[in-house]
């Protein structure tokens, strides 16, 4: 989904590229959840997914590059009670949708540290779409807010 053509842009925010800046993004989303009256499950799904996606961007998107980070987040209201949160960054190309599901380990000794963020996004979201547009990653998270 390159452009939520049938949607209405509700709000945007620019955030920094440090771990602590994630709080700005989740706080912004929480305010939107209150204003828009999203069900608790929708709020949880979008907040968790945005945090997981943004953690990847700030942790790896600009490592080893000298580019000035630009990270923008948009919230769109879509038809049929759905909500899209789109994360746009100018980090290195990274497609979370290409990440394989981690194998469920048999024991704590075998458990791999990491790799669970995308698994959680896939579970809690209706759709998760990625595209590379020019120098930007665009990741669109869609959840149902109809309740």
């Amino acid at each position: 989904m390159a452009t939520p053509a049938a949607g209405t842009l509700v709000s945007t925010i620019d955030v920094g590229a440090r771990i602590d800046d994630i709080t700005d993004a989740t706080g912004w989303l929480g305010t939107l959840a209150d204003e828009q009256g999203w069900p608790d499950a929708t709020r949880f799904a979008l907040e968790l997914s945005l945090e997981e996606a943004l953690t990847n961007v700030v942790s790896y998107g600009f490592a080893g590059t000298d580019r000035q980070p630009h990270i923008r987040i948009e919230c769109w209201r879509l038809p049929e009670g759905r909500v899209a949160v789109r994360l746009i960054d100018n980090g290195v190309p990274f497609d979370p949708t290409s990440i394989a599901e981690p194998v469920v380990p048999d024991s704590i000794e075998d458990a791999r540290i990491g790799g669970h963020g995308v698994q959680l996004m896939r579970h809690f979201l209706e759709t998760l779409d990625y595209s590379r547009e020019g120098e930007e990653n665009q990741l669109t998270l869609v959840a149902n807010a109809a309740g």
């Binding site: 997981e52 000794e109 959680l120």
Partner: peptide, 18 residues
Amino acid sequence: YVSSSGLRALLVAGKAMR
């Protein structure tokens, strides 16, 4: 609220305890 980062912290401690 817990994200995969919180799970990761528990896993690190769990491995050490095991």
